[in-house]
Simulated assay, not measured.
Amino acid sequence: MCESTVYSTENSMIMEDVLNIKIDGNKIYLTDILGMKKELSGVIVEIDLDKHGIYIKLN
Score class of each variant (00 low, 15 high):
M1F: 10
E3V: 08
E3N: 06
T5D: 12
T5E: 07
V6W: 00
V6F: 04
Y7T: 03
T9P: 00
T9L: 09
E10K: 15
N11E: 11
M13W: 09
M15L: 08
M15H: 01
M15I: 06
M15G: 01
M15C: 02
E16K: 11
V18F: 02
V18N: 01
L19I: 15
N20D: 14
N20H: 13
D24V: 13
G25C: 12
G25H: 13
N26W: 03
K27L: 10
I28E: 04
I28S: 06
Y29A: 11
L30N: 09
L30K: 08
T31K: 08
D32K: 07
D32V: 05
I33V: 07
G35S: 11
M36I: 11
M36Y: 15
M36W: 12
M36L: 13
K38G: 09
K38P: 04
K38R: 13
L40G: 07
L40C: 09
I44S: 03
V45Q: 12
E46Y: 06
E46N: 14
I47G: 00
I47H: 04
D48R: 01
D48F: 03
D48T: 05
L49W: 02
L49K: 09
D50S: 11
D50Q: 13
K51C: 04
H52M: 13
G53F: 00
G53Y: 00
I56K: 00
I56L: 06
I56T: 03
K57V: 00
L58R: 14
L58E: 14
L58Q: 14
N59F: 14
N59P: 06
